[in-house]
Design a protein around this nucleic acid. Structure first.
Lengths: 348, 348
DNA sequence: TCATAAATTGCATTCGAATGCAATGTTAGG
DNA sequence: CCTAACATTGCATTCGAATGCAATTTATGA
C-alpha cells in the first residue's frame, strides 16, 4: 500500500495511538466533519468525497471511536444483559440467542452475571455509568429497582420475570399453562398420587410453577401433595426423592419437578437408590426443554420454552422501546411446547 | 430528602437527562473539576470539599459517565470476551467465572458469541470501535487477527486456544497430558482395542485431543485405531457409535471421546442400541468434567479442567498486560484433574 | 508574627466524533 | 447566459469528565 518507504512521510499505521477522524481528514485533505459524514449512512456526501475519505481511512486503518460517538449522540449502542445464574442449563441457550440477535441488530452486549439474586443493587451501580440504551433482565429486580429505570428513562425488558406491583415490559413462558399441560396428561394417564420437587423460593418462576401445580392438582381433587426441594440442581432432585421415599407411604405415581435438571436428578435417584424405573414404576416431568432432556437415558416429558421466539420478542420489544420511549409497557406470554418422552406415563 | 416541596426550587432528580458533573458542581457551589476529583480515588481534595460534593451528588443522583471518562482517559474499562459456542456445556461455566472475576476487578464485559468460528472477522470489526482495554478469546483467531491486536496494542489472552506461529498469551488445559492420563488408565485396565470419537476438525483443542490420543496409543503399540465423528454434540457420540458397530469387527474395548457430551451420547448409544453397558461391556471416557458428567446415569471417567484456576489465570494475565503493556507473552498450561467413574474400567 | 512550603481549588483545555449553520459549489430552468 | 434551488463542504461548537497549570488557601517552621 505504502510503496517504497519515504522517510519523511510514513503512513502512521503502526504509530502508537489509534487513528482518529482528524488523521483521516488530514490524510485525505478534507475536514473532520466530512470524515464523520462519510461514516454516517444517509449523510450528504458526494461520491467523490466518499471515495477519497474511504481510501484514506482504509490506508490508515481507521475505525470510528464508538466511545466518542456515544458521548455526542447520547446513544451508547450498548445494552446490558443481566443473568442470574448461568450455571442453570437453560440460560446459556437464552444468552446465546440474545447476544446473537442483539449483535445482528448492531447493538453490543454488556454482560452482568449475578451469583446471588440479591446482588442486583451492586450490579445496577455498575450498569448506570455506561449509559446503556436498554437492559434485558433475567434476574430478580425489586419495584424500587424498576423505579430507578423509570427515573433514568432506561428501557427495561424482563425475561421470564415480572412484577405485579409495577408496570414493566416482559417476555415470559406461560408457567401456569405449561404446568397444566403436564398435570393433565399425567392425570389422564391415571396418576392420582403426586409429589412436587420445587425450585428455589426466591425464583419467581419456580414459585409460580409450584403454585400452579398445587392449584391444578387441587382442582382435580388432589390435596396434601408433598412439596420438597429448594433449588434448581440435580442434587436437589436426587436428594428430594430420597427424602420423599424415606417419609414412607410408598412412592408417588408422579413427580412434578421445578425444571429438567431437577427431574433428571429425581429419575436417577429413583432408579439408582430405589429401583424404580420410569415410566414403568414412576412418572417424572420437568420443565424448560434443555438439551439433556432429550438424552436417551432420561427422555423427559417436559415443557419446552420457545426460546427462539421469546428472545426474539425480548429483543424487538427492547429495540422499539429504545426507538420510541413512550411505547406502552407490554407483557408477552408464550405457551411452552409439550415434549413427551419415556420419563412418564402420559396421555396427551 | 427534599422535605416539603418548594415549587421554585425542585431538585432536578426526575429531569430528563442524566445528571452531569456540572450539575453537581453548580448545586454544590464548586467547580466541575472539584467534582471530578472527588470521584477519583487518591486525588487532592479536602474533606470538607468531598463532603459537600458527595452530598450534592447524592441529592441529585449523580453517576459519573463512564463514556465521557473513557474518552479522556483512553481507558474504557471494558474487556471483550469472545466465545465460540455457548451451547457447548463447558463454556457457560467458563463465561460465568470470567465475568464474575472481571466484575470483581472493576472491569465490564462486552460479550461476543461466534456461531461459526469463521465469524471472527466480523466480530473483531465490532470490537475495535469500543476501544476495549483487552480481549479474552475462546475462539479461533488467525495469525493475521493476532497481528491486528499487536498493531492496535490491544492485550489479548487466549483461553484454551493458541497459535504456534505467533507469540500470544494463553491459558490452556493440558490436553495431551489429560489424554495420556486417560489412556494409561484404560491400558492398565487391560483394554487393547480402542476407538476415537473426535470433535470438529476446526477446533484446535479437539484436534489436539485426537492427535494426542493417536500418538499415545501408538506409543503403546496400538495402531489403526478407528477415528469417527466431527463435532462436540451428543448426536455425534450417539451416531458415531452406531457407525462403529455397523462397521463390524465387534465393539472396541474402550472409546475415547472428544468431550463429555460426546461420551454421554456414546454411552447412551451403546446401551440403547447395542445392549452394551459400561463398564462391564464397554469403557468410555470423556473430557472437560462438566456437570452432567457426574450424573449417576453416566458417571464419566473424564478429565476435569480446572476452570477456576484457568479463568483466574486468564483474568490476572490480561489485567497485568493492561497495566504493563510491555509484559512478555506467556503461555500457562494447567493439568486437568482425573475423575474416575463407572463409565470405564480404569486403573489409576 | 511572617515568610515559605504544601495542600486545595479553579481555569482552560483535551479526548474524538457529530451536527447546526453558513459558505461555497453545482445544477437546472428560463 | 444568468439566477434560483439544491447539494456539498467546512467552521465552530457540543457531549461530560479528567488534568496540567496557575491562583489561592492553609499549614509549617523560624
Amino acid at each position: 500500500m505504502a510503496g517504497r518507504a519515504r522517510p519523511d512521510k510514513v503512513v502512521p499505521i503502526t504509530s502508537g495511538r489509534p487513528v482518529t477522524s482528524y488523521d483521516v481528514a488530514r490524510h485525505a485533505g478534507v475536514s473532520q466533519s466530512a470524515v464523520s459524514r462519510c461514516f454516517k449512512p444517509g449523510a450528504s456526501v458526494s461520491k467523490k468525497m466518499r471515495a477519497r475519505v474511504m481510501a484514506a481511512a482504509e490506508e490508515l486503518g481507521y475505525e470510528p471511536n464508538a466511545i466518542a460517538r456515544s458521548l455526542i449522540t447520547r446513544r451508547s449502542n450498548l445494552i446490558a444483559v443481566l443473568i442470574s445464574n448461568l450455571t442453570n442449563l437453560y440460560y446459556p441457550e437464552v444468552l446465546a440467542e440474545l447476544t446473537q440477535r442483539l449483535s445482528a441488530a448492531g447493538v453490543r452486549v454488556l454482560l452482568f452475571t449475578l451469583s446471588r439474586e440479591a446482588e442486583a443493587d451492586e450490579v445496577l451501580q455498575q450498569v448506570w455509568p455506561y449509559r446503556v440504551d436498554g437492559v434485558i433482565a433475567s434476574a430478580q429486580l425489586s419495584p424500587a429497582h424498576v423505579a430507578e429505570f423509570e427515573k433514568r428513562s432506561v428501557p427495561l425488558v424482563f425475561y421470564n420475570r415480572y412484577l405485579n406491583s409495577v408496570s414493566v415490559s416482559s417476555v415470559c413462558c406461560d408457567q401456569e399453562d405449561g404446568v397444566r399441560q403436564l398435570i393433565d396428561g399425567l392425570y389422564k394417564a391415571g396418576h392420582r398420587k403426586y409429589a412436587i420437587i420445587a425450585g428455589p423460593p426466591d425464583s419467581v418462576v419456580g414459585v409460580e410453577r409450584k403454585t400452579a401445580a398445587l392449584e391444578r392438582l387441587e382442582e382435580l381433587g388432589l390435596e396434601d401433595v408433598p412439596v420438597l426441594g429448594e433449588d434448581y440442581s440435580y442434587e436437589n432432585g436426587f436428594n428430594s426423592v430420597n427424602e420423599l421415599m424415606a417419609a414412607g407411604g410408598g412412592p408417588p405415581h408422579a413427580v412434578i419437578c421445578a425444571n429438567d435438571v431437577v427431574a433428571i436428578g429425581a429419575l436417577d435417584s429413583f432408579r439408582v437408590n430405589h429401583g424404580l424405573v420410569a415410566p414403568r414404576d414412576i412418572s417424572v416431568v420437568g420443565f424448560d426443554g434443555v438439551g439433556p432432556a432429550s438424552w436417551k437415558s432420561y427422555d423427559l416429558t417436559t415443557i419446552r420454552q420457545p426460546v427462539r421466539r421469546m428472545t426474539e420478542a425480548a429483543v424487538s420489544m427492547l429495540l422499539s422501546m429504545i426507538e420510541e420511549p413512550e411505547m406502552p409497557r407490554e407483557k408477552r406470554v408464550f405457551s411452552g411446547i409439550l415434549r413427551t418422552g419415556s420419563s412418564a406415563k402420559f396421555v396427551e
